[in-house]
Design a binder for these strands. Sequence first.
DNA 1: ACCTGAACACCGTTCAAGT
DNA 2: ACCTGAACACCGTTCAAGT
Lengths: 211, 211
Amino acid sequence: MGTHDGAGGGNLAAALVQAAEGLITERGPQGFSLREVARRAGVSEAAPYWHFANKEALLAAVAEAGFSDLAAAMEGMRRRIKDPDRRLREIGVAYVRFAVAHPAHFRIMFGPEIADKAAHPALKEAAKQAFGLLVSVITDARRGGQVRGSGVEEMTVAAWALVHGLSALLIDRQLERHGHSAREVETLARRVTRLLQTGLGPRPAKVRGGG
Amino acid sequence: MGTHDGAGGGNLAAALVQAAEGLITERGPQGFSLREVARRAGVSEAAPYWHFANKEALLAAVAEAGFSDLAAAMEGMRRRIKDPDRRLREIGVAYVRFAVAHPAHFRIMFGPEIADKAAHPALKEAAKQAFGLLVSVITDARRGGQVRGSGVEEMTVAAWALVHGLSALLIDRQLERHGHSAREVETLARRVTRLLQTGLGPRPAKVRGGG
DNA sequence: ACCTGAACACCGTTCAAGT
DNA sequence: ACCTGAACACCGTTCAAGT
């Protein structure tokens, strides 16, 4: 508000976002400071305030770029894979892969560093788009299947929660038993996503009527 | 290390933890400061350092209390409910209920504020216990059912990821379409957890062989 | 053993002042 | 329009000094 907020003509804004991404990757959301970003960009500590309202606005720009990358990764999977069930799985895997590859981005995108997300509408929009992609893919996967009422909505929440939770647990080192290499992470994500599709229980009967 | 770290005879340590819980609940992990905690406890800004090595150690104490409460809530459900499937569901619901009721605790417990969790072994221990509870409950629910290889381990990861992700998405206001009242949260958690048990897909066939 | 006071090196943010 | 310098009110942490 009252400032350019990025997409003007200046290139210091872009340089600041780039420096911010580097710093946040190196030191995490804790060690991040606006003054250090300014130092890395070679300007005074007050300069960023011309381009961003405050620290949070700069972080929001970083988060936005992250959402854009995540959406691209998911969209790529949707385009590449035709089988609806496998497609749903691999989109989930792409989500987890992104989180583990860019933990700092992931935390900024979803964490409390950006306190008031309503103040950064582009963020909400990006998240909504990712959600919409999931909805459509799940709808495709269930086409012809019996889905009553708000079924797809709930399925989408479940699918999102599953890959989001797996991402968070991996990033926060809560699953140390399972390796963090790219291959191991993908295998785990694939198996866990498949479990959501088949279900934990061996009860092929009551599936249809469950209220 | 080199300091008491809590369970000594002094009561300033306990007062500091209590003040920290209050402050973190009011202002979130961002607005939290050790100096403010000291002020609320009515001591000088250097006093906390006699009882806690640093800010992180105080936060670790808060996280530990949170894990203890969460474990108690889950354990209570295990004792109260006999039907294995419903028991698993309600333990999941208890997890989400705790997260939404105590978002600040939840974030401290799992977030990056405590950078090196290996430095606070009590934390790892508490998390491991909660995981063990899930494993045993899932084992019970699957008793008699066919579970090959590392099946239970993977199921546990899936169940944990699901409720953890739902908790995180709710706390971070990413599911604004769904209300945040206690009743609405419980209903959503129950439905989503049931989805993991029954599975998304209407494919009662291939369930058994899936590699 | 336990706490205070003062200090150091950092922050986020503002604001007059420069060009 | 865009940036600097200096300032304000905060931090986390340390350390001599008190009792």
